[in-house]
Amino acid sequence: MTNARDIQLDALRAIAVVLVLYSHFLAPGGSSFVGHLGVRLFFVLSGFLITRLLLDARDTGAFAAGPALRSFYARRMIRIFPPYFAVLALAWFASEQSRPSLAWHALYLSNFWYARQNDWTPWLLCHFWSLSIEEQFYLAWPLIVLLAPRRRIEAIAIGVIAFSLAYRFYWPIAAGPALARDLLPPGSMDALGCGALLAVRRARGVDAPQWMRLCWPALAVVFLFVVQSDPGPANSAWEWPRWALVQVLPLVPMMAIVAACSNGLRGTPGRLAELPPLLWLGRISYGVYLYHSILLACAVRAQSWIPINVSEQGPGRFLVAGTATVVVASLSWVFFEKPLNGLKRYFPYVAPAHPRGASEALRFGAAPALDLQPTDRSRP
């Protein structure tokens, strides 16, 4: 069930998290679209991997929806909760400004908090909005994949994408620019839905459509032109179309790239995508994403002890805060996250075909044959 070439998807995680670090540490003025592009790539990857994982479980002869759902949520909690709540605990001690919003973050409602405030306060946890979006997706989508009629799932995924795209037309008609337009769940369901749609197509034996494989480079070029264009004054004729295009145009290139890497790139691109440092960064990308803002805050506070400038966007900040982030995320993975991930073996998606053999396997620390654990790597 596992695609042996999924190793290249770790490279995409690495690229996504580097885009976020570039935006927050290096880009002049904190260029937002670069980091947002990285987050959108994470969404497409998550939609693809979670959907494929659940469809693989559903297609197994011993599948039962109830145990599969329980295992899904248990495994998500094991993977996501420990480092997430560790960061919230650090935020409690490190920043009084963060305390009024901690309950929202703890309930994975960060996106609603910032949309409600229409302000990125507290900035220390502002990147948690995307983690909340994913958790909200995880609450609903597995129910659809595991319980809806199998033949309807592709249509539902297309409907999710269409609803998200239609949501973008609401804002120019009925509202002004606000954080809510990007942070409410419909603003990200198109990216998650695109990844899910790719997985559904793959499950029925077809890949990304031919037109997508042929035209994605042209769409990527158009995207770059749109991003570099002048948005004009507020409420200008170009402002809203530009915003919508910046959100929508990357989706097809991202789907095509995820499809290509999940199949396995060959030649020089494949070798580059399997460079060990890139794969390691992809493996620890969840920790990198979680910890980077707190480590940036620590670096800024320690500026008097650091010989290069970390108080402003630039190479010094990228070097110091970026290095600290990778080191801490690596330690977190080796000593904290990876050992806890071993508990996933107690929550197989599909009941073992031979309970006695599976029991012996668990006793000796092995994963059951139908655990599907290798594909369960949807978080950054």
Rank of each mutant, 00 (worst) to 15 (best):
L19E: 10
L198R: 06
F81K: 04
P276V: 09
V300D: 09
Y167H: 10
I80T: 12
L251S: 13
A148T: 04
R266M: 04
R356E: 14
F163G: 09
A14M: 02
T51K: 07
S71M: 02
P28D: 11
L19M: 15
R356H: 15
A103S: 08
V258K: 05
L362N: 10
S285A: 06
G195V: 04
S130H: 04
A237Y: 00
H105D: 11
A244Y: 06
A218T: 14
L12E: 14
T325L: 01
I161H: 10
R168T: 14
A351K: 01
V145T: 13
H292M: 04
L21V: 01
L198Y: 14
A94Q: 12
G61S: 11
I133V: 13
R204Y: 04
L183Y: 00
P348Q: 09
R204W: 08
T51D: 09
P83W: 06
L37Y: 08
L295T: 06
G264L: 02
I50E: 15
R99C: 03
P67I: 09
V288K: 04
G35S: 03
H127V: 03
I78S: 10
A148D: 06
W141E: 12
L12D: 02
Y286P: 03
A237G: 07
A234S: 13
A64E: 15
S23A: 10
T325D: 00
W113D: 05
R242Y: 12
A155I: 10
P307W: 06
P339A: 08
L197Y: 05
L53V: 11
R204V: 15
Y22L: 14
R58P: 07
L109T: 11
A175Y: 00
G176R: 00
L37T: 11
T268Y: 01
S285I: 03
K344V: 10
A64S: 09
E337K: 08
F318P: 07
V328Q: 00
